[in-house]
Design a protein around this nucleic acid. Structure first.
Lengths: 136, 136
DNA sequence: TTGATAATAGGAATGATTATTATTAGTATT
DNA sequence: AATACTAATAATAATCATTCCTATTATCAA
């Protein structure tokens, strides 16, 4: 399928992009929807999903498929890794350079043709670490 | 919460475990359900989910949270990586040793307390590679 | 202005998973 | 063996994120 991608920047698209760029919290579609609604009260959740998809396909933003069930979005389209809080789901950037040589180790060792990899760190954010410590 | 884990091996549990151990295909809960049904026609999908969870908590099997929406299960509870086909979702083991030093690079560089990481390779399985090649 | 195309809002539908509940099976104690 | 107790089950309902559908509206080109 040739998958024609539209590149028109509608008001909805611009608004979503602006809101995403104002945050470092890697929000979910639903969180973005709640924010956008303050500026465009009539926007629909479906529009948010579709436009996040479009913006990701345009390479302007990045769709994150991390552990857990929900997808998150990152204003930074460049490849980088993330840390996810196992307690509250919060996501932060992982300050580590991309491992570009990883795929090489697999050449010849697998029948799959390898495109890339996804790496994600798991841990606890400061808030949840503190909360756990208080319990004891 | 202390979360008491039962360790009783019921017939359903044994059957699920056996079926999982007979395959290397990292099946989803639904696929396991379909297989188990041939031996225990009256088993319910909920039982399959619950027992897969129990077996994973017992450390006997491993629950995989890979990219995409569905969870898959692995009879091998030891830490190892996987390759996922971007086309059909098939999952295979990745013949590469665990990267135990990865977390070290983040110490002091993040406010999160790090527990571990998840690494997953993406690519195309032989079947899907072939199919794609034929299209052109 | 008119048609063609793309984007939208709103809501319905889907799909995987989890929760609920009444019932049954298993175990230990007398 | 009868009892009481707990855990596990089947069946189904509920949930939650996401995708799909449809009628309407906006945008652009001729």
């Amino acid at each position: 399928m040739p998958e024609k991608i539209s590149r028109r920047m509608t008001l909805q698209r611009k608004t979503i992009l602006n809101i995403l760029r104002q945050t470092n919290s890697h929000p979910s579609a639903d969180e973005i929807y709640e924010s956008v609604r303050k500026q465009l009260p009539r926007i629909s959740l479906g529009t948010v999903y579709r436009n996040l998809e479009v913006l990701a396909n345009m390479g302007i933003i990045q769709k994150l498929e991390l552990g857990g069930t929900i997808k998150r979005f990152d204003w930074n389209p460049n490849k980088h890794y993330h840390i996810r809080c196992l307690c509250c789901g919060k996501v932060d950037n992982a300050p580590i350079a991309p491992l570009n040589k990883l795929e090489d180790e697999l050449y010849g060792a697998t029948v799959f043709s390898i495109i890339g990899h996804r790496l994600e760190f798991e841990g606890f954010c400061p808030d949840c670490t503190k909360r756990e410590a208080q319990k004891t």
